[in-house]
Structure formats: structure tokens, C-alpha cells
Design a protein around this nucleic acid. Structure first.
Lengths: 341, 341
DNA sequence: TTGTAAGCGTTATCAA
DNA sequence: TTGATAACGCTTACAA
């Protein structure tokens, strides 16, 4: 930094006005006579003024920062969600400070401390790591997206409805037996709704079914090997039945599809598949995969609305905090492609 | 805000020390006797002190902010790059202010103005929109990644080498004719190297080849339709020849693969395919696709090193700015899978 | 409509 | 080893 920054003081001196008047020019220009507005505008140009938001924040306390804690950007669901959040900048003007937590409790806590040190006005949490009770204890506006949310506001996909949609679609595709593969998610998380939806429909309509709760691994290779074993098992257990498989997400649905195609040369008539998320892979698979579409743009938009509401409330002279956390539910959209009838 | 924040003044009063001593405790604790260190530590706890980085920034000018301008997070390449950049937080401690520019010039300029208002210490630009000459004119440390970089530091994949690798692999797979499909990128961008590599090798080794420069569209549907036409064209033009296709990226390589599999039931012996990027789809395709792997973690790490070098230099009493922009080149890694021999 | 002066919560410079 | 005191650049009563 060779030369010092141009400040309000410089502009004030140059225009023979005071610092407060310069401040007014930026915050409420119409309160100045046009003559002075022009004079200041001209001065800004000739002096080469650059605004300093840091000083402004320190003075008025409004950072316009929102913190985001996200598990990773490797999975399309998360990166697309962040994409949508970032795009709300045009509407709300909030800037995003993003941390990709490696889902370790103390690391994420450290991130939040850091975010608080920057006086973030609100926090959006996609990571499932920290319990909502703890998040609530920071006493700043928080919105959770698709995670445990007992004590904080949240926006979730209607997973139960999604489970029902997927299950019904497979049933109507004439499957003899329905199988849902998933990991053993706790019933406090939104994703558990998919399992419940599956079971409720099967029981209600007396459909033969099987629930396979198992860890499918973290890499494509692991996924492939474990799902391959499941396919072998199903082929011996239900050789001639038409099997309707409800996969936990599109990535895994695609693995299943690839296995079947490599084994049978095509999608055999004894298999029907539904995925979850409507991520790009579901469309880009050899055979486009039917899936339950999460409405990511809507989820993001609603999250921002919920958060900005809380943040606005907080700026009032007499803020009334929410009595109860608000939970918004977004209905998923069933997308029929070629892996179902 | 009901209660005011706890500040150094409060701690000073509580411990009968001065604000400066409290500041020293945070910035250079060992300069205080242990006794006082403990006293202050205790006070922090009982008073419930939270650090305020905004005030610190205003006082010492070090924001530890890096701005990132990225085209979108929809494409895996960008989201993974951001992922890797974010993960350097553990090493460097810089926080990232991320803007997803919709690649409109004036919008991206506005973003940069905003970032400058937050006193970012450096800028990483993935978006190709603004010319490097303009970026250089902001006079802050900048690093470009895989984009036009005449006037600024940059980190790029060795695209020329990548083009050579892909072309050689297809040649060694016994193809009779090599075809490279790409969009008509200007020769100032790093990606042009792929085209040059392809042409140079083909000419040098006298390999029959064809270069198809055409826009493949922005959606999967458009990709599919346009590549389908190309396949039909190739099938009539070179019916019995073994065609080696070098696609501009894995997404498009996957589309081509899907088209062939749907047309022929398998990858016909008259086609071999190489993609570019090593994005997840290349592994997750029905037939795992050979590809030229961009080393995203390395690119990100080198970009951060280059940037932090410039930022450190700038903090010195007598900073010596770079005479010439530094350009780092990262060699890609050829990944042989099942779409080549 | 404008100006004065006291913050905002740190760091930095000098003395002691 | 410690403490005054003045920045940092802007906002905001309160006065004029």
C-alpha cells in the first residue's frame, strides 16, 4: 500500500462539506440538494474514491454476510444448492462465506466460531454434523436444509411424499416385489421419510416388499461391488419376479443400471428402477432413470426467504424472536423416464 | 442485540490491565507473564468474550479474504475446483468470498467492485469473461485458472500435452481415422492447446484426421441431438473405418458413448473414445471412459501458492511487485479405461 | 440542509 | 512488561 485510501474526510475537504454529508450522499442521497450531489459525485471521480465496507460494518453492525456450512461440493446436490444460494445475491445482496466442513464436529464448530467473528447475520447449514440444539444455542438466525432440525428453522423436501411417489410408480409399473435399498438413517432426519413412505405404501396396499438397510460405501468402486452383490442375491432369491427397486439416490440408481446393462445387455424386463434427486446423472445415464426430483432452486429460495425474514426481524428496534422454529416442506416432483413403465 | 458485546475494554477493566495488554495476549501471548495470561484467559471465559474480526481488519488492514469468481457450480470441474480451494483453509487460513458470475461482463465487474470494498487480499478467477488486461488493472494479487491470462498470473493444465496424450492413445488403439470434436475456442485460451496437440500429432505422424469445430449446445438434450447427427454423419462417411474420437470433455464423451450403445447395443469395434477432465461421469458411465485427467487438486493448490506468494509480498514494508506474470503448467494424467484399447 | 463529535473494537506507536 | 493515545473509515445522534 503506497498511497493511503481516499476517505470521506478527503472528499469532505475537497467539496467543503462535512463527513456526515458525504455519508448522507451514500445512504440517502436525496436528502442533499442536487447541486451538492453533483459536486460530490464529481469529487468521487477525480479523487478516485473506493468504498470501504469494513469500516461501514464496524460502524453500523450490518455485515450482509451469510455463513454456509456444507459437507462437500463433490456431490451434485450440494454444489447445485450452493449455486442456487449464490444466485440469490442479485435479490437479497447478501454475500456468502462458505466452509466445506469435512463433517467433523470440532472442525465445524471452529468454522462457526470463525464465521461469528465476522459478524455474519445468518447461517445456512447443510451439514448434518452438529445437532440442531447446539446450532440454536448460537442465537443467530439459522436455517437448516435437509437435516435434523428439531430446534431450528428448516426447509426440507417432503421425503415421505417422495417415498410414496417412488413406491407407487414401481407398483404401477407392474412389479411383483418392491425393494428399497438405503443406509440406516436415523428417524430424526428428513431422509428417513423415504423409508417410511416406502413401508407405509407397501403395507397399506399389501405389496410384497423388502427393505435393505446397508452401507453402500463411499466410492464408485465400493458402490459397484456392493450393489453387484445385492443384484446377485436378488436374482437368486426372486429369479422370475419383476423387481421394482427404489434406490436412495441417482448415483446409486445409475450404478445399479450399469450393472444390469453389463449383465444382461439391456434393462431386463424383470427390473424397474427409481432413483432420488434428479441429479444430472439420472438424465445422462445410458437409459434415462426415473427419479424423485428434489426442487433445489425452490429449497434454496425458501431457505433464503426464511433466513432473511429472521435477519430483518433482528434489525428492528424491538425484535420478536420466533416462538417456535418454522419448518417448510417442499413437495418433490416425480420424473418418469425410461427405467419404469 | 440486547446486550453489548464484550470488548477488550471490558476485559481490561476486569483484569486491571490495559487494552493494549489484552491485544498482546491475542497476538503475542508469550510476551506476557504467565500469571497475566492465566488471569486474562479466565476473564475471557467468565465475561464470555467473542472476537471481532471486523474491528481487527479495520485496524490492521488484513482481511484474510480471497475473492473467487466462478462461472457456475453446475459443472463438476468448477465445483470440484472450489471444493479444493475451500479445503486450503486449513493450510492458509484464508476465507473465500464466492461469486458465481453469470458470465456477463458488467455483472462480474460489479462483483469485483463489491469484493474490493471488502478489502480482499487476492482474487482467483475461473470465469473467462473479463480480459486479463482489465483484471490486472485492479492492482491486487490475481490468479487465473484455465482461462486467458496474458497479463496476470495463472495456473493451467498442459492442454497441448493433453491433446497429444489423447491423440496418441487413440492412434495406438489402432484407429484408422482420428476425429476431434470441439467448440471453436480462440487460440488465446488454454483449451486451444488440445486442438493444437491433436493437429500436430496427426500431421507429424501422417494420421488421417478430421477436426470438427462446432457448438454442441448447452443442455444434455441439445448435446444428444447434435452428437447423434455427427455419429450418423461419421457412420456414412467412414462406415468400415475404426474411428477414434477425441471429445472435448467427459460429459460429451458420455453422450457419445450412450448414443453408440443405444444404437449398437455395445461399444462397436469401429469406435474408440477419449474424453477430457476425469470428472465423475467418466468413471460412472456404462463403460468407463478413457480420459485425460485434469489434476484439479494440484491446480487449486498451485493457484493458492501463487496467490499467497503475491499476497505475502504485498504485506512487506517494501513490496517488490512481479516484473512478469508467472504461469504455471500442470501436466494432465492420461487415464486408460475401457473405451480405448 | 448541514456540521460536530462520539462511537464501533481492534491495532500500532511511543513512552514509561 | 505495560499503558496512553491515536489511528482505521464510516455511522449516527444531536445541534445548529
Amino acid at each position: 500500500m503506497k498511497k493511503k485510501n481516499v476517505t470521506y474526510a478527503d472528499i469532505a475537504a475537497y467539496t467543503n462539506l462535512s463527513k456526515s454529508t458525504i455519508s448522507r450522499y451514500f445512504n440517502n442521497p436525496d436528502s442533499l440538494p442536487l447541486e451538492n450531489q453533483d459536486k460530490i459525485a464529481a469529487a468521487l471521480g477525480t479523487l478516485g474514491y473506493k468504498e470501504n465496507k469494513i469500516a461501514r460494518i464496524l460502524a453500523n453492525g450490518k455485515t450482509e454476510f451469510i455463513g454456509v456450512i456444507i459437507p462437500n461440493l463433490y456431490m451434485h446436490y450440494y454444489s447445485e444448492m450452493l449455486n442456487q444460494l449464490l444466485s440469490t445475491y442479485e435479490t437479497y445482496g447478501y454475500k456468502f462465506l462458505v466452509f466445506a466442513g469435512n463433517s467433523k464436529k470440532d472442525v465445524e464448530k471452529k468454522y462457526i466460531e470463525e464465521l461469528l467473528a465476522y459478524n455474519i447475520e445468518g447461517l445456512i447449514v447443510l451439514s448434518p454434523t452438529l445437532p440442531s440444539k447446539e446450532l440454536a444455542s448460537y442465537h443467530i438466525p439459522v436455517v437448516a436444509i435437509e437435516r435434523e432440525d428439531t430446534y431450528i428453522c428448516s426447509v426440507n423436501t417432503d421425503n415421505y411424499m417422495g417415498g410414496i411417489q417412488a413406491t407407487s410408480l414401481l407398483h404401477h409399473s407392474g412389479c411383483d416385489i418392491l425393494i428399497h435399498i438405503n443406509s440406516d438413517v436415523p428417524d430424526t432426519t428428513p431422509a428417513y421419510g423415504r423409508i417410511k413412505g416406502f413401508l407405509d405404501i407397501c403395507r397399506e396396499r399389501d405389496i410384497p416388499h423388502e427393505l435393505l438397510l446397508t452401507d453402500l460405501g463411499d466410492t464408485y468402486k465400493e458402490n459397484y461391488e456392493r450393489i453387484l452383490k445385492i443384484v446377485d442375491m436378488l436374482d437368486t432369491k426372486y429369479p422370475d419376479k419383476k423387481k421394482g427397486i427404489f434406490m436412495p439416490n441417482d448415483t446409486h440408481a445409475n450404478v445399479l443400471l450399469n450393472i444390469l446393462i453389463r449383465k444382461y445387455g439391456a434393462l431386463p424386463d424383470t427390473y424397474r428402477i427409481v432413483g432420488f434427486d434428479n441429479s444430472p446423472i439420472s438424465e445422462e445415464a445410458v437409459i434415462p432413470i426415473s427419479t424423485v426430483g428434489q426442487q433445489i432452486p425452490t429449497l434454496a429460495a425458501q431457505a433464503m426467504e426464511l433466513l432473511s425474514m429472521q435477519m430483518e426481524e433482528r434489525k428492528k428496534r424491538k425484535p420478536v424472536p420466533l416462538k417456535e422454529p418454522i419448518h417448510k416442506i417442499i413437495t418433490p416432483i416425480l420424473i418418469r423416464r425410461e427405467t419404469t413403465d
